[in-house]
């Protein structure tokens, strides 16, 4: 795993997934854009799939986080209050919440 010396967030930080819509290869699922969660874990730095997908080198590497969400915050009609969702999200898709 790459070292994330430049990671902007640390575990426990509240984050908002950017509500962005643009063409291209994006690994941030639609259903989680605009949702609020927290940093569960910092995975390190990885090549950026958004440029790898077009033959690029994926550099600079991007910090990757395990981001947690309350299921009840992600879906309108989710009943089990304690359930959670975890997604791997690159730093440029996150902002402080």
């Amino acid at each position: 795993m790459g070292r994330a010396v430049s990671a902007r967030f640390k575990p426990g930080d509240r984050v908002l997934v950017k509500m962005e819509d643009r063409p291209g290869h994006i690994r941030t699922p639609w259903y989680v854009r605009g949702k609020r969660g927290w940093i569960e874990r910092v995975y390190g730095e990885f090549r950026n799939p958004e440029t790898l997908a077009y033959g690029g080198d994926g550099l600079p590497k991007r910090p990757l986080y395990l981001v947690g969400f309350e299921q009840s915050q992600v879906w309108n009609k989710y009943e089990a209050a304690k359930d959670k969702l975890f997604i791997d999200i690159y730093e440029h898709w996150l902002e402080p919440a």
Partner: peptide
Amino acid sequence: VEVRVHDSTADI
């Protein structure tokens, strides 16, 4: 019981 779903969207 708490259900935790992991959506693997990256290299993990």
